[in-house]
């Protein structure tokens, strides 16, 4: 029956480090023999081994610690880095793919325009995930200490920053996603301006824009979106309002809306055939655009005002010194 014991011991030490194996195996076997005593009937041996529990659980006890790919101490830090890397890699990949699509010789269809960025995004994110995870797994294996932050008096006081000045990560991410989508739409607009059109059952679609004239403006527009994107990424990264960040944020917002109004009021860009069908005449269209511009400008100013209130309201008392007022 010693064969059963031998296999049990072998299976247990298999999970241990090489240098421990021989010693643990010898000892474990001796202990089991002691427990079995004189009665080495198959039934008794089975019972003793069943009571010892499964070899892998026993091996875990011998190791004295759990095994992790990414341990609980490092996990928060890993997760933060993973999100950041994926975000940056994702954005860069999509932007580069789209830019490369514009400069291809042959015209690109709308399908490719959507499918290609998604495909390259997927492969880039898989790669980012792989490398971040491998790096952290290796760090964990060699017990490199990578805790998220030190906990000391300075860290404690940092916590006391006025909570209203924090920028919600979810807001920044929503901004980043929204801007990416908008950028994508602009890319489509640049490539196929005729897609924005009035579609009718029994006639050819009537495009809103005169494509060739619109293109240079779209490029400028994309530039403003990229600027907004950079500022939003900065907001995500900092997570906290500063005066400089507010000025940057307000500037790109205003730049964006002013550029929009500038483009929307280039009346030569519109297709007269479209306007005669929809609002009726160019004059009516001009009224609609001007009204919309005023509304958008007001909304932007309200948004900036709200940010300004958040940024500057609490700043003064915080700088008063150690006697903080809450």
């Amino acid at each position: 029956m010693s064969d059963l014991i031998g296999r049990y011991v072998e299976e247990t030490v298999r999970h241990l480090s090489l240098k421990e194996r021989a010693e643990v195996a010898k000892e474990l076997e001796a202990n089991i023999q002691d427990m079995i005593g004189g009665d080495d009937s198959e039934q008794h041996v089975e019972q003793v081994l069943l009571d010892m529990g499964s070899p892998s659980v026993l091996a875990k006890q011998y190791r004295g610690k759990e095994r992790y790919l990414i341990g609980p101490e490092t996990f928060d830090f890993y997760w933060m880095v993973l999100k950041l890397v994926c975000l940056v890699v994702g954005i860069v990949t999509v932007v580069i793919t789209l830019i490369s699509l514009f400069f291809t010789e042959s015209p690109v269809g709308i399908g490719t325009m959507i499918a290609k960025p998604i495909a390259s995004l997927f492969s880039a994110l898989s790669g980012a995930f792989l490398w971040v995870t491998i790096t952290f797994a290796i760090m964990d294996y060699y017990q490199v200490n990578a805790t998220l932050e030190s906990w000391d008096a300075k860290a404690l006081h940092d916590l006391e920053e006025a909570p209203t000045r924090l920028i919600k990560k979810s807001d920044s991410i929503a901004d980043l996603v929204g801007l990416s989508v908008f950028f994508l739409l602009l890319a489509v607009l640049f490539n196929r301006p005729e897609l924005i059109a009035l579609y009718r059952k029994d006639a050819a679609p009537v495009p809103l824009f005169i494509g060739q004239a619109l293109r240079p403006y779209v490029i400028g527009w994309m530039a403003t979106v990229i600027l907004s994107f950079i500022v939003s990424a900065l907001k995500w990264f900092k997570g906290k309002w500063t005066s400089t960040l507010f000025v940057l944020s307000a500037s790109v917002d205003l730049l964006g809306i002013i550029y929009f109004i500038f483009v929307a009021t280039r009346w030569k860009l519109y297709n007269p055939a479209f306007l005669t069908i929809f609002p009726g005449s160019m004059t009516r269209w001009q009224i609609i655009i001007k009204a919309a511009s005023v509304v958008l400008l007001i909304l932007t100013l309200i948004g900036n005002g709200d940010d300004a209130y958040t940024v500057f309201r609490r700043t003064r008392p915080d700088e008063a010194g150690p006697a903080r007022q809450r």
């Binding site: 643990v24 474990l28 001796a30 202990n31 010892m52 529990g53 026993l58 006890q61 011998y62 004295g64």
Partner: peptide, 27 residues
């Protein structure tokens, strides 16, 4: 040795599982 300690503890009303004691001794 492992098994004698197991019995000693059990006799003194401190029962301990073999699969806990042996690894503990080793550690």
């Amino acid at each position: 040795y492992g098994y004698s300690l197991l019995q000693l503890l059990a006799d003194k009303q401190i029962p301990i599982e073999a699969n806990t004691l042996y690894p503990l001794l080793r550690r």
